[in-house]
Design a protein around this nucleic acid. Structure first.
Lengths: 190, 190
DNA sequence: AGCTAAACGGGGACTGTCTCCGTATAGTTT
DNA sequence: AAACTATACGGAGACAGTCCCCGTTTAGCT
């Protein structure tokens, strides 16, 4: 969003309505939900949708931004409340959970090469910073292997979330199970 | 393929031509390559493509079948040539490599719920059997945790392959790196 | 050569994405 | 309140890809 000039009230209203409808649509139909459908349900024209969100990726990013915010907040809270290794493991679980919220979001954000959205770089960057915070803490405590990078963490977690998507109602269970092995794999044993 | 009646020579020729062109197209453009384009390049009409492959998934399965065959063969060879743990790790690496051959194949096969293709169940089943063979061997040798299942292996490996796709030319390196952690995570330590 | 079932090509129905232009309206100034 | 104008709108239609279907062609058999 361009804050250089305040958005008109009607545009702001439409923007929020589009976001609300998109959240529902993506949750229900996955990230491939029809954009024209979303516009229709939001009571706006398709031109309006594209003015606010130039493409599907931009809309996905906007919708996902809340969850990124929560991941960052929880990451920071975990860093003060939990032992280093447990904090990191819990955060990875939370991330996998969020990546399961809209079927296909992991793959969609994954496959973005950065040419369609500027914000995705921001989302990724913000999550990488939180991963870094928790990772360094765990590495300093000697509980995680020293060569593990934030990029590794995001990749492993995203991979697990993606691989678990096909299990529908059981995807959380499966993701937790697979993440159990993954966190063991990055654990340092004295 | 329905073997109940021999396919005519021209149909057989077209089928093979479609497969060959599809391999190239998927390798170059990913699994979303235009099917009409593939038909055109194969020198057949789009109706012909759909007669041989009722949908995109069916074509993907047919194209991927060779690689499944190779994975099974290599799995069996590794089971006789390598120590249990190393055999399993090598096979997982090979599987990740094959899953990277066509951008998006992992996600496409992953998201198939079995309603579009019969064969995908076969591909998955065949790979799960090979995973089972190598897994049991490693578990009997006491080198892999006893509660790991073939489903876990396929999930972890597919997840890693998917998560590495965005790195293009570096995806093999990244996949190997992530798999390194994964195989440590399933390793049993006495 | 004749026959016929298998197989074909490609036009067009269908669906979704996305652009663009005439129209509407929010917000500011007079 | 009226006038002005930049912002924002709606939705028709261009575009691209999927996929069906029907008249035509052809492979294989007698």
């Amino acid at each position: 969003m361009n804050p250089a000039r305040p958005m008109r009230a009607d545009a702001r209203r439409n923007y929020e309505q589009l976001l609300a409808v998109a959240r529902e649509a993506f949750a229900q139909h996955g990230v491939d939900a029809s954009l024209d459908d979303i516009a229709r349900h939001a009571g706006v024209g398709s031109g309006t949708l594209y003015r606010h969100f130039p493409n599907r990726t931009a809309l996905l990013e906007a919708v996902f931004e809340d969850r990124v915010g929560e991941l960052i907040a929880r990451g920071e809270a975990l860093a003060t409340e939990e032992p280093p290794f447990e904090a990191l493991a819990a955060w990875m679980r939370l991330m996998a959970e969020h990546l399961s919220s809209y079927r296909g979001i992991g793959a969609a954000l994954l496959n973005d090469d950065g040419t369609k959205g500027v914000v995705v770089t921001g989302c990724h960057h913000a999550m990488a910073e939180t991963a870094q915070l928790l990772l360094e803490r765990a590495q300093e405590a000697g509980t995680v292997l020293p060569d593990v990078t934030p990029k590794d963490l995001l990749g492993l977690t995203n991979g697990v979330a993606l691989a678990s998507e096909k299990y529908g109602a059981d995807r959380s269970t499966q993701a937790d199970r697979l993440l159990g092995y993954v966190v063991e794999g990055i654990r340092r044993r004295s």
